[in-house]
Lab assay of single mutants.
Amino acid sequence: ETWTVFRRYSRFREMHKTLKLKYAELAALEFPPKKLFGNKDERVIAERRSHLEKYLRDFFS
């Protein structure tokens, strides 16, 4: 099953920080790092999307 969620990266990062405070075991999940430069580059966006998808798969498993 596939879901499509339209949210900004910052909202996922905020969710991760909030949940990590409540559920300490989530700290073990690696959240994709923020890029200061090149964040509009298609390659960077695709890489971030891939890392975010892995994070979410790990989160829900």
Rank of each mutant, 00 (worst) to 15 (best):
T2C: 03
K20Y: 00
F60L: 09
D58Q: 08
E42Q: 09
L52P: 13
E30W: 15
A46R: 12
T2Y: 05
R11P: 08
S10L: 10
D41Q: 09
E42K: 14
E14L: 04
F60K: 02
N39Y: 05
L26W: 10
H16Y: 13
N39E: 04
Y9H: 08
E42G: 14
F60M: 06
E47F: 12
L36F: 10
K22H: 01
Y55W: 14
A28M: 04
L19R: 00
A46L: 05
A27F: 07
P33Y: 04
F59I: 10
H51E: 04
I45P: 14
Y55H: 08
A27L: 10
L26Q: 00
F12V: 11
R43W: 07
P32F: 15
L21I: 04
P33I: 14
K17E: 05
R11Q: 08
S10N: 03
R8Q: 11
H16N: 05
T18W: 15
R11N: 08
F6P: 06
P33N: 00
L29E: 00
A46S: 13
L29D: 09
W3L: 03
F59P: 02
G38C: 03
T4D: 13
H51D: 01
M15H: 04
L21W: 02
H16K: 11
R7L: 10
L21Q: 13
K20C: 02
L19P: 00
K35G: 08
H51G: 14
R48N: 10
D58M: 11
F59V: 08
T2M: 03
W3Q: 01
R57N: 04
E30S: 13
W3M: 06
V44P: 15
S50W: 12
K20T: 00
F31N: 01
E25Y: 03
R43L: 05
P33A: 11
D58I: 10
R8P: 09
R48P: 12
V5M: 12
D41H: 10
M15Q: 00
R43V: 08
L26E: 01
R8C: 14
H51C: 04
A46G: 14
Y23E: 00
P32W: 15
V5Q: 09
F37L: 06
D58P: 12
A28E: 02
K54L: 06
W3F: 12
D41L: 15
R49G: 10
G38I: 05
E25M: 04
L52G: 08
V44L: 07
E47S: 12
E25P: 08
E53K: 15
K35R: 11
S10F: 12
A46E: 11
E1K: 06
Y55S: 12
W3R: 06
I45G: 14
E25F: 06
E14G: 07
L36R: 02
P32S: 13
N39I: 11
L26V: 04
V44E: 08
S61Y: 01
F60Y: 06
R7D: 03
E53T: 15
P33W: 15
R49C: 14
R13L: 08
R7N: 08
S61W: 15
D58W: 14
R57E: 02
L56M: 07
T2K: 04
L56I: 10
L21T: 09
L36E: 02
R7Q: 13
T4K: 08
R48A: 11
E42L: 13
R49I: 15
A28F: 08
R57I: 04
R43D: 05
T4C: 12
K22E: 01
K35W: 12
W3D: 10
H16W: 15
L29C: 06
T4Y: 08
V5H: 01
Y9M: 13
L26H: 00
K17M: 05
D58H: 12
R49S: 08
S61I: 12
G38S: 06
F6V: 08
M15T: 03
E42M: 08
F59L: 07
T2Q: 03
N39V: 10
I45W: 15
L56E: 00
A27Y: 00
K35Y: 09
P32C: 13
V44K: 13
H16I: 15
E25I: 05
Y9R: 06
F59T: 03
E30P: 10
L21C: 08
R48W: 14
L36W: 14
D41N: 12
K35D: 01
L29F: 07
F12E: 00
H16P: 07
E30K: 10
F6G: 07
R57F: 05
S61P: 05
P32H: 13
L56H: 00
S10A: 09
V5G: 14
S10G: 09
K35H: 07
R13A: 12
K34V: 11
R8Y: 11
F59G: 02
G38V: 05
L52N: 02
K22T: 07
H51I: 05
M15Y: 14
K17D: 03
V5E: 03
K22D: 00
A46K: 13
E25Q: 10
E30A: 13
A27M: 14
L29M: 15
F37V: 07
K35Q: 06
V44Q: 11
W3S: 08
A28W: 07
K54E: 05
S10I: 06
E53G: 15
F6Q: 04
L19K: 00
R48V: 09
T18R: 06
E42S: 13
R43A: 11
E25V: 03
F6K: 04
K17W: 01
T18D: 01
H51P: 07
E14P: 02
F6M: 04
K20M: 01
V44C: 15
S10R: 04
L29W: 14
W3A: 02
E14F: 04
F60V: 07
L56F: 02
S50Y: 02
A27C: 12
R57T: 05
K40Q: 07
E53D: 08
S10K: 05
R11C: 13
F31M: 01
E47K: 10
E25K: 08
E47P: 12
S50F: 08
A28L: 05
L52D: 01
E14A: 05
L52F: 11
H51N: 04
A28D: 00
E42N: 15
F31C: 02
E14Y: 01
